[in-house]
């Protein structure tokens, strides 16, 4: 490897990347091991400690039923992050597959798929999701389904335009001359070159999906009541906003930090993968 001096700016980007990644991993670990890390059962009620302010016993205080908010946030991460990751994974795979194929093959296939996208994009995303959920019913699987149906189009659009931008490159022509089949051109020559840009979108999507889930739960369209979930906690907390602001504050803060972390992560990935700045 050639050793060159890294610019100070680039160093900052790397630092930002590692911090964001560290936090993201931390949140995932918290969610995964919440059963070991949480001091209390999230559903356990402590009737003698209702609406109690944060203390050494209850780090983030308790809610109107005396449940430990800290434990509920840890467990809630499971639901929120699980849904966000699952939806992003589903949407990314479907969207990228459809988008790249449409862009690569072109013609009727492309036209039909893109018109379907247009139709779906014509509805405002979140309102469409709300309508879907109220139509097929609440519950985590339904929530995932509704969110996937409404948001794969974004990935399809982006991956299609990325493919179109490199499809006419000379190296694709040369791949054909080297006897590569369509499948090989798509998987070996095109996808590796569009993946970096898509990765950025994937991480950004996790952040925005977290927000959507919280929003839906706030409206009572998310996970069913006893399950701890950040958005649902917000919705409960808003009734006690003045008496016990911690009920609203801590879940809100956690959502905020999560969204910021995933957006930061996607931002720094974008900058690090920019080949024009490949000077480290």
């Amino acid at each position: 490897m050639k050793i060159k001096t890294m610019s100070r700016y680039r160093k900052m980007v790397w630092i930002r990347f590692w911090i964001a990644l560290g936090f993201a991993v931390l949140f995932v670990v918290f969610a995964l091991f919440s059963n070991h890390l949480a001091p209390y059962d999230p559903l356990e009620t402590h009737y003698d400690h209702m609406l109690e302010a944060p203390s050494g016993m209850f780090f983030f205080g308790t809610d109107q039923l005396g449940r430990d908010i800290f434990s509920r946030i840890l467990y809630g991460g499971r639901t929120s992050l699980l849904i966000a990751f699952l939806v992003t994974a589903i949407v990314a795979v479907i969207g990228i597959l459809i988008g790249t194929t449409a862009g690569f093959l072109g013609g009727v296939f492309d036209a039909v798929l893109m018109r379907i996208c247009d139709v779906l994009l014509a509805f405002p995303g979140s309102i469409f999701t709300i309508a879907m959920v109220s139509f097929i019913g609440t519950g985590i699987p339904n929530l995932i389904l509704a969110m996937s149906i409404t948001s794969w189009t974004g990935f399809a659009r982006i991956s299609r335009s990325l493919v179109l931008s490199i499809k006419n490159n000379v190296f694709i022509e040369q791949a054909r001359m080297g006897g590569a089949s369509n499948w090989k051109i798509l998987t070996v020559y095109i996808i590796p070159n569009v993946m970096p840009s898509l990765l950025v979108n994937i991480f950004q999507n996790i952040g925005s999906k977290l927000l959507t889930i919280s929003g839906l739960s706030l409206l009572g369209l998310g996970s069913p009541p006893p399950t701890p979930e950040w958005g649902f906690m917000l919705s409960e907390g808003k009734n006690f906003m003045y008496q016990s602001p911690w009920m609203l504050g801590f879940p809100g803060l956690v959502i905020l930090i999560n969204v910021v972390v995933f957006n930061l992560l996607s931002d720094s990935i974008q900058e690090l993968m920019n080949p024009k700045q490949n000077n480290w």
Binding site: N169, V170, F171, Q174, A175, V188, Y189, P192, N193, P275
Partner: peptide, 8 residues
């Protein structure tokens, strides 16, 4: 340069 896939 353009006859090569940058990541191959």
């Amino acid at each position: 340069l353009s006859s090569f896939s940058p990541r191959m």
